[in-house]
């Protein structure tokens, strides 16, 4: 509701958005940006890691080059954020229909101790069939997270188990491997789907 209202502000709103975008650019990429750490992932072509998908295939960043990619982190013992994100993604893919067919969609676990290949296979099976589950040795997961500038942390729970804090954004890459944008957790569908389209369109532009 609130978002519709924002869209309704018209021309002054456009100006304000342009200003916000400029400020955003200034702070993120521009001279106002913090020097060493960017939040944005590096290009997939600059990443180096070896994982296994939920069907047992060896995969790495090169697996994703050539098609646009949607990737995110989570773990299958996650009761709230991860099933919600996976359901959201399934919904976005349904909305995109055929458009999404040429896209990689990867769910990368940050909890390889519990998320074996078999576990990932069972879990992703409940969601959109395009979603692949990737796992691997802890040190390889750490390399993926490095490349994405994503973080994760193991936290003990009162029940004697542990849970994982982790980056909950969905990352979008063009077919070239270039990082395009990310969808923040809880971003509404009317924002998420156009962002995915942007990643899909970059592919076409890059190909010409």
């Amino acid at each position: 509701m609130r978002r519709r209202a924002i869209l309704g502000y018209g021309a002054p709103g456009v100006g304000a958005v342009a200003l916000m975008l400029f400020v955003g650019w200034w702070q993120v990429d521009g001279p106002g940006g913090p020097e060493p750490i960017g939040q944005r992932p590096v290009a997939l072509t600059a990443m180096d890691f070896r994982l296994t998908d939920h069907e047992g295939n060896a995969v790495g960043p090169e697996t994703l080059i050539g098609r646009p990619t949607m990737a995110f982190f989570g773990f299958t013992y996650c009761p709230d954020v991860c099933p919600t994100t996976l359901s959201d993604i399934s919904g976005w893919l349904d909305d995109l229909g055929d458009e999404a067919d040429e896209m990689n969609v990867v769910f990368i676990t940050v909890d390889p101790e519990r998320d074996t290949v078999e576990t990932m296979a069972e879990y992703v099976g409940y969601f959109h069939p395009a979603i692949r589950g990737w796992t691997g040795p802890e040190e390889q997961i750490a390399r993926v997270a490095d490349g994405f500038h994503a973080t994760y942390e193991r936290v003990p729970t009162e029940s004697g188990d542990y849970t994982m804090n982790h980056s909950a954004s969905v990352f979008l890459f063009a077919a070239s491997g270039r990082f395009v944008t990310m969808i923040d957790y809880h971003e509404p569908r009317e924002f998420a789907v156009p962002k995915i389209r942007r990643a899909l369109e970059e592919e076409t532009e890059g190909a010409t």
């Binding site: 939040q39 709230d80 954020v81 919600t84 973080t151 994760y152 936290v155 009162e158 849970t163 804090n165 982790h166 980056s167 909950a168 954004s169 990310m182 923040d184 957790y185 809880h186």
Partner: peptide, 28 residues
């Protein structure tokens, strides 16, 4: 979910609901 996009879960403690108000338990 913090400014860096990292999500975490913590016990919420007691939840007071004022007269006429409601509290939503919802994803995220």
């Amino acid at each position: 979910t913090n400014a860096e996009g990292v999500s975490s879960m913590t016990p919420a403690g007691e939840i007071a609901i004022a007269p006429g108000e409601s509290v939503a338990l919802e994803s995220g």
